[in-house]
Design a protein around this nucleic acid. Structure first.
Lengths: 155, 155
DNA sequence: TACTTTTGCATCGTGAACGATATAAATAAG
DNA sequence: CTTATTTATATCGTTCACGATGCAAAAGTA
């Protein structure tokens, strides 16, 4: 039993990793028609809540690094969903704003969350049980983020 | 309130996606010294439980596609952790087996799960609360996998 | 004011993920 | 026993994700 803990069955992270990938996969039928990927959808969610944000703010809200978000947004710009302008007070900043196409996509995306809930109900039963994970996941995320920040200070 | 559901705060998948990424990040301090990545660690977990498996079995256990696992294992082979031999009954199969180095790494990796638990306790408090998510995640994963299989039949 | 440090973003390289496609071997069908 | 289909793996192209590095603007310091 010396290696008991090294069993796949006992690993939480493996489940998070798998659940995240498969859930992202479940978005495919709804995002493909819009021509966007799941991370791009997340960027749109952020901008639909508040337009005209610098790259850094978007990255921060998504817990991503700017070197992930920058090319992501460049692809979205090429697709005509957003445009980037230089910041006025701080010229280092690149303010990302929605184009007409990006704004209009909100209407087309409106029903995606309920579609996904429906898909989950269809196969797994209760959304309630799954929703109960949310506060725990939030605590986990907050703690891991904390840990990451601590490490960056020590370097 | 028409777009209420499109808020990031209301999205389960976003949390899974974030929690998975950050948890994988928490493995870095333990995997970097071994020179492996998290997905490579998962492949090793599978092989430590049972050596000499075809690519397909490994992919299936990790809920991954073979076109993800093949290059992953090729990199591990280049790193001297595994070797690949042709299957004897079925020559299409590539049997993946651990090298001496791959076997020995188990000993070095033995304490990683408890280290990670300790890290989580340090910052988030209870591992119990987090462990309670496991059956729900398993149900979610099983349901999503089911949905994916259904779709493949319809094509 | 001149110099140093920090900050915001971009670029590069590597390793996943995965859809699409290819190829050869195994299996099924005729 | 051919021919058709399925299966196991591999290759290719695109998009993430992120560490490392670069660079210019802003902020802090002497």
């Amino acid at each position: 039993m010396e290696y008991e803990q090294l069993k796949l069955d006992n690993q939480l992270c493996f489940r998070l990793y798998t659940a995240a990938r498969l859930t992202m996969g479940a978005y495919h039928p709804y995002l493909d028609p819009l021509g966007i990927t799941y991370p791009q959808y997340l960027v749109l969610l952020v901008l639909w809540e508040q337009d005209k944000q610098p790259v850094n703010d978007i990255a921060h809200k998504l817990f991503l690094e700017t070197n992930t978000v920058t090319p992501l947004i460049q692809r979205m710009e090429k697709a005509g969903l957003v445009k980037r302008t230089k910041g006025k007070e701080d010229t280092r900043q690149r303010i990302v704003s929605l184009t007409k196409k990006g704004i209009e996509m909100r209407e087309q995306a409106k029903h995606i969350p309920e579609c996904l809930s429906a898909d989950i109900i269809k196969n797994e039963g209760s959304v309630e049980e799954i929703s109960q994970m949310i506060p725990t996941l939030d605590k986990l995320i907050a703690g891991l983020k904390q840990q990451l920040n601590n490490k960056q200070i020590n370097n």
